[in-house]
Design a binder for these strands. Structure first.
Lengths: 207, 207
DNA sequence: GCAAGTTTTAATCGGATGATTAAAATCATT
DNA sequence: AATGATTTTAATCATCCGATTAAAACTTGC
């Protein structure tokens, strides 16, 4: 978990916290070091004293967010004790819970992946090694059993799309649907239950 | 349709074209007027000569993109001649086709909706009046017939999520799945067929 | 082909912004 | 309390970038 705002935290941590807030709200380019100074209530020069440059600070914040985004997921997908359906359910729960407390993350990640894909992809360990995960074995078994012809990528895309997109598009959806912040959160709680069911339906629909 | 690059187009149009390219690639904040000048091969001062400011130029480009994004959709959803299933199918087809030729639009819209939601929402006519559309009547009929309890917002979210998100996240998904541009387009063509079926499944699943 | 308007150019301005600096304030050690 | 190290501050620098300007290069109408 990312550190929460506290009373007795170091200056360095205060800067990182403020930077995370502002970077996530406005993206890298639109953020001025002065914004971070203001947000943290600290002197401008401290940012360059503790972190050498704006870019360096951003990289550090970025890395922590990516780690948060990826945390537990690999273990979850590699657990031999849970079924495939359970894994999907756990994954959706994990992400919706995480996004409910950090709703700006999807935008942030999409933003940086889009504006500088090469840097972004190299920064986070996008090195594959997905084939070894236990869920892949389970998927192959399911394909044999039920004669499913659907590409697994579609299922992955659908799961992530339905889970993450409502957070990325929250400002638009909220405006269009006239939902309060609370109602929107309630809606996401509902989706925590529903999305795994919808995915199961897609999987059980043999060809 | 947005104007395509041509041989005999006015300077004004050249600037707008270049601006669209760069704004969509980098977002408003990260774009310098000098980038637009370079992209168009024109003198820097022409941007301020034809459009008074960077912001003004952005607003114009933005408006055109939003219009493209919203074009035909209202008519489609208000057509009394098509069934609800057909409407969803047409909607998905329309958007995937549009996004295949303009894959940066989702990121662009999400970006601006997030960084300055108030400006964005006021700019595009987010004024509701959704209730009058024919599809709403059809939805209500379906609810009566099949005793569906699912919130319509979930279905809307799912349709848009599954359609749009794979484009917004394309750089990440492409990297993770090692798919070429062609294969990725092929995947989207498949989704054109599949998404309406998945949505139908969700709808037919009574409670 | 010349005058009036229009478009394009190179040069420059002024404010914003990332970064630095040198001095002041605070803290730690004895 | 005195000394030295660390942290914080206000002021400043250098560069970037949106915008302007004045003159040059075109175009149009006669």
């Amino acid at each position: 978990m990312l550190p929460s705002s506290d009373s007795t935290i170091s200056t360095e941590e205060k800067i990182k916290l403020a930077a995370r807030t502002v970077f996530m709200r406005k993206g890298y380019a639109a953020t001025r070091t002065r914004d971070i100074a203001e947000e943290s209530g600290l002197n401008l020069a401290l940012i360059n004293y503790y972190f050498r440059s704006k870019e360096n600070l951003f990289n550090i914040v970025m890395l922590e967010i990516c780690q948060l985004f990826a945390s537990n997921v690999k273990e979850l997908l590699n657990n031999p004790e849970t079924t495939l359906d359970q894994k999907i359910e756990q994954l959706v729960h994990h992400y919706i819970d995480m996004l409910l407390s950090n709703p700006s993350i999807p935008f942030f990640i999409l933003n940086e992946a889009h504006t500088s894909p090469d840097i972004f992809l190299s920064r986070i360990g996008m090195d594959g090694e997905m084939e070894e995960l236990y869920i892949v074995k389970q998927w192959k078994e399911l394909v044999n059993e039920k004669e499913i012809t659907i590409q697994p990528l579609h299922i992955i895309l659908n799961t992530i799309s339905m889970t993450v997109f409502p957070f990325a598009a929250a400002p638009i959806v909220r405006a269009k649907s006239n939902l309060s912040t609370d109602s929107y959160q309630q809606l996401m709680e509902e989706r925590k239950i529903m999305i795994p069911k919808w995915i199961s339906m897609m999987l059980s629909n043999k060809k």
